[in-house]
């Protein structure tokens, strides 16, 4: 274990070779860990909102329509080279793994939450921490359908 005891912690910041970020371990820090019932939890106003991102289910008309639209706009001929398969381990469906999330459709909420975490919108007083925040998920979110569509119409 290589610890660099300076700044904002290692596994959280940029744990050697891993791509973990504060955002990814936030749920662990906030929701897991030992709870001792005679202790009092400080108010998590401003941080609490981070927890709302999880429980949104895939089954909604909005989600259906968004999926349909994304399909309609999809360029079906590209991207054949990357089959996301895991042949030898994809067995049936078992133990409640990832439940109910649609992609993309939820990103707005998550981004908002991420912003509130990273404090970008609040003008955090600790600029050196902002660099780590930049690695966090907001830029990763994919909203490609619109762009695709525009390109297709030109063709």
């Amino acid at each position: 274990m290589t610890m660099v005891p300076q700044g904002g912690g290692s596994a959280v910041g940029r744990g050697g070779g891993s791509s973990g970020t504060l955002y990814d371990v936030l749920e662990l820090i906030l929701d897991r860990g030992l709870v001792i019932d005679v202790f009092v939890r400080v108010s998590l106003v401003g941080i609490e909102i981070l927890k709302i991102d999880a429980r949104i289910v895939v089954a909604s008309v909005d989600t259906y329509l968004r999926f349909a639209e994304a399909c309609n706009r999809l360029d079906l001929e590209s991207g054949r080279k990357a089959p996301a398969q895991l042949p030898e381990v994809v067995g049936g469906m078992m133990e409640g793994g990832a439940h109910g999330k649609s992609k993309g459709a939820l990103s707005g909420a998550v981004d908002a939450v991420t912003e509130s975490l990273t404090g970008k919108s609040r003008g955090d007083e600790e600029p050196d921490e902002e660099e780590e925040a930049e690695e966090e998920p907001a830029p990763r979110r994919r909203r490609p359908p619109a762009r695709r569509a525009a390109r297709r119409e030109k063709e």
Binding site: F67, C71, V90, M93, A98, H99, S102
Partner: peptide, 19 residues
């Protein structure tokens, strides 16, 4: 279409997560 795709997404994600 959306409903069918959503079901497929769910199924495939769950299977991959389990794998």
């Amino acid at each position: 279409l959306g409903r069918a795709v959503a079901a497929q997404v769910q199924e495939r994600q769950d299977a991959l997560a389990a794998g």
